[in-house]
């Protein structure tokens, strides 16, 4: 599904140039659950941003579903993104002014799904995430665990092929964290590819494979059994 080759990304200020990704090459197959680990500043988030097409690389190739996307325009990337990729963040990033239902509905609005179909799909996914009873609440009225469920519901409502999760349990206690990991595992078992950045060895154990980064390079891969 994903093949990156010799990917490079630099950050420049007036005086210093920092290498975030240094000729990084990774392949991820459809249906995999991959965890990316490494110390702060190793390039995890940069990699996730590029994989999620939020950012473009300075050099190298990124093939997504057999399409070279490294030099796509912002608009093309956005279009590919909204149909194929779902995001889950450490800080949930729900929109405060919208209810649970409306937050989950938003991606469907942006992809132009008809209203009746939207209601059906949002209810379906809320049901699956066991958050249906909170559909008319605002994010501030929910616990962290509930908020992350909503965020996951929002990420999957469009049935993306790939979910990118950036420390999804970072702001949760262990019990809520485990619930979230179970949810992701379920999704993966139903066929969704998942790439997750994490600091937690515990969470990483839910994945099939761990890629460890240091200074923008892959230094080790662990296959989980």
């Amino acid at each position: 599904m994903i093949k990156i080759t010799n990917l490079e990304k630099f950050y420049r200020t007036e005086e210093v140039e920092t290498i975030a990704l240094n000729k990084l090459s990774i392949e991820i197959a459809t249906g995999e659950f991959v965890a990316i680990m490494g110390p702060s500043g190793c390039g995890k988030s940069t990699l996730l941003n590029i994989l999620g097409m939020l950012d473009d690389p300075d050099a190298g190739s990124y093939v997504f579903n057999d399409i070279e996307v490294a030099h796509f325009t912002e608009r093309k990337r956005a279009d590919l993104r909204k149909h194929n990729i779902g995001f889950v963040f450490q800080s949930f990033n729900l929109i405060d002014e919208l209810t649970v239902f409306e937050n989950v509905e938003l991606p469907l609005i942006y992809t132009g799904v008809a209203a009746s179909e939207r209601v059906k799909r949002v209810e379906e996914v809320l049901d699956k995430m066991q958050i249906m009873h909170r559909r008319n609440h605002y994010p501030q009225q929910l616990s962290g665990g509930q908020q992350q469920r909503v965020a996951i519901a929002r990420a999957v409502v469009n049935k993306p092929k790939l979910i990118l999760a950036d420390e999804p349990t970072g702001n949760l206690d262990s019990s809520n964290g485990n619930d979230v990991m179970e949810l992701l595992t379920d999704l993966n078992e139903q066929g969704t590819t998942i790439i997750m950045v994490t600091h937690s060895e515990h969470d990483a154990r839910y994945s099939h494979r761990i890629i460890r980064l240091l200074d923008g390079q892959s230094v080790m891969e662990n296959i989980m059994v």
Partner: peptide, 16 residues
């Protein structure tokens, strides 16, 4: 600004 970021990530175009 954060809201704008989130909207962009989940698929909003500039026009939207």
């Amino acid at each position: 600004v954060k809201e704008i970021g989130v909207r962009k990530v989940i698929g909003s175009s500039k026009k939207q």
